[in-house]
Amino acid sequence: MNQTSAQTWDEFMEGIWRQNPLFVMVLGLCPALAVTVSAVNALSMGLATTFVLTCSCVLVSLLRKLIPKEVRIATYIVIIATFVTVVDYLIQAISLALYDALGAFIQLIVVNCIILGRAEAHASKNPLLPTLINALGMSAGFTLGLLALGSVREILGAGAFFGVALFGPDFQPWVVMVLPPGGFFVLGAWLLIFAAIARRKQKKLAEITQNA
């Protein structure tokens, strides 16, 4: 792997692991808690956010030299709202059942702080390629985060995964998992796991430095 591709990979992985928007930066919690009652909903919301985040960041990056800093926030919001409207129509065209399941949270992607945050902190300062890689990495991290929540909640709360029943007719679903409190329980558990891994890593690093 040469230096450029290593950098690209690093940029992409940042969103998935070190700066994971959901489990490390703890952003975008509104859709993360509300729509993750099933894996399908979680994946769909993740893909919709991916579309909006990537398209918005690409357009912001392309227009970055043209946008005066005084009106940049208004401009970013208009661009984000545009792609949210596009994804709204696209989901309606793909499946109305999915559109109903995601409800108002499709339109609420406009106010997802991950997107405005990326546009302001990264896309407005970087050329197209790094912006695209960063946006895709962040989107993948967010989508995987939602999927991690949605899978656990669907398996425990409905005894199914992507709609396929796992445990047979005798399974008593743990209904609280598909209710709002279940979202907090599962998110808390995932945050705990992420924090534990990060602490172990830090401990190992400290030991290595001490030994050296």
Binding site: L63, A74, T75, V78, T85, V86, Y89, L90
Partner: peptide, 21 residues
């Protein structure tokens, strides 16, 4: 000028998406 240009561009994208779907 910039706001107008971006609004026009976004308007075009929205209308195209509406018509297309």
């Amino acid at each position: 000028r910039t706001l107008g240009l971006i609004a026009a561009l976004c308007g075009f994208i929205i209308v195209a998406a509406y018509q297309g779907t």
